[in-house]
Design a protein around this nucleic acid. Sequence first.
RNA 1: GGCGGCAUAGCCAAGUGGCUAAGGCGCGGGACUGCAAAUCCUGUAUUCCCCGGUUCAAAUCCGGGUGCCGCCUCCA
Length: 479
Amino acid sequence: MEFYNTLSKRKETFQPGEPGRVKMYVCGPTTYNYIHLGNARALVVFDTIRRYFLYKGYDVTYVQNFTDIDDKIIKRAQELNEDPVALARRYIEEYYTDADALNVRRADVHPKVSEHIPDIIDMIERLIARGYAYVTGDGNVYFAVRKFPEYGKLSGRSLDEMRSGARVDVDPNKRDPLDFALWKAAKPGEPFWDSPWGRGRPGWHIECSAMSLKYLGTAFDIHGGGADLIFPHHENEIAQSEGATGETFARYWIHNGFITINKEKMSKSLGNIFLVRDLLDHYSPAALRLFLLGTHYRSPLDFDLDAMQAAEKAVIRLKNSLMLLREALEGRAVEEADLEGEDFAGKLEEISSRFEKGMDDDFNTALGLACWFDLAHETNSYLHRSAQPNRSLLERALQLFTDFNGILGVFPEEGGEIVLEERKVGDDLSEKLLELLIEVRQDARKQKNFALADHIRDRLKELGIILEDTPQGVRWRKA
RNA sequence: GGCGGCAUAGCCAAGUGGCUAAGGCGCGGGACUGCAAAUCCUGUAUUCCCCGGUUCAAAUCCGGGUGCCGCCUCCA
């Protein structure tokens, strides 16, 4: 298994620090609003990577933080005249609503900054003691980038290169313009915590260092996040963590690419931020997840409505195939060997190994999806040409459906089985009434009363129920 | 200005030295059907932005060009 490591700038074979275990930390959202498409991509990408490690048999420890103390939160809270900590907590709950909808599994630990202030203070003290940080007269603490010779190793920049591009609004208390805050003194009206340097709050970068080291230790396996975090956030995390511990921080760095909207960057100034919540009003979570995994995670992904509609259709194709497969297993499948199935058996194994090979090569989910569609196609084809399909072959196909979904997470699962809502109506009575209507329509068809039969079918379609007359009888599903 | 990425069919998108250039959406033909739907069969890039080079062999490597984009500032 190999994947691209931002630190070395090439693909590397993965060697876990501890055999059979993967420890990963992913930068989570700052909770001052509902999550947007960009957050969703990172969530889904890293959730999928985690699922793949689990599939490969690793014992995965997955940590994802919430930044619940931050300038943006404070600003938003002041606008809404709300307590910042309460506001952040509210949006953490909203985060779970959206992440759950996207079938993103919960992390093993979801640490919050507000609950780790002592760890952060402790780490800053260590940095000061080791000469990597200094306190200014106004109660701020800064990290001295010049003291860390390897500064820039992740983002591939040197301090001198960056100096020319440095901003003008340099704090005169900083020794170097690129020094960054570890602790910020509280201004009036801002939330604060007591510290050896007075009342204040942590800078943005220190939280991830303190929390990842707390839960995963030094030299943990994978640190992930969006590509925009490479600099300065992750660069600073490395400087702080390696400065404080004298040991390697994270061994592999994985970064997902950005989402653009109609080829433009998604940004507040352009007013084109898409919230997951709003998208889910129009598209299924399955389609959104499939859309996000249809492009390699490091490539830019352009969002547009046509692509989402295509994804929605593609999801239906997978669903239909799974339903056909399950119906055959519940009905006409037989134990006897089937000559038609010889070719199918080989195809299944070929698809399975191609899927795994693709995922082993830098998590190629686009190829994985293609394999899934091949699986659907081969399954449909077999079911089409064989009147009495072989049960064990169908069970193997179903196993692959379950495996692929277990990794890509397109459909929700329960007890290891894919859950489709297609065959459920509100309650028993509705279901019986639907069956009655289907019966009436079948009678009409027998009497060649096609006007009535079509009327029933059309009206049901308006109600979101699609009828299909197949050689095996009438099937129905939700639109 | 510095650093980096990308250019593959109508659209989206895999593939990074050699079998007929994956897959999805769309579109065309056929089968099935009372008609649909679903599904199956089948067609849909003589070619991978342009020019030059390396090689027996390149979409895939090298050089040049053109176009698009990202980061360097809070940001997934």
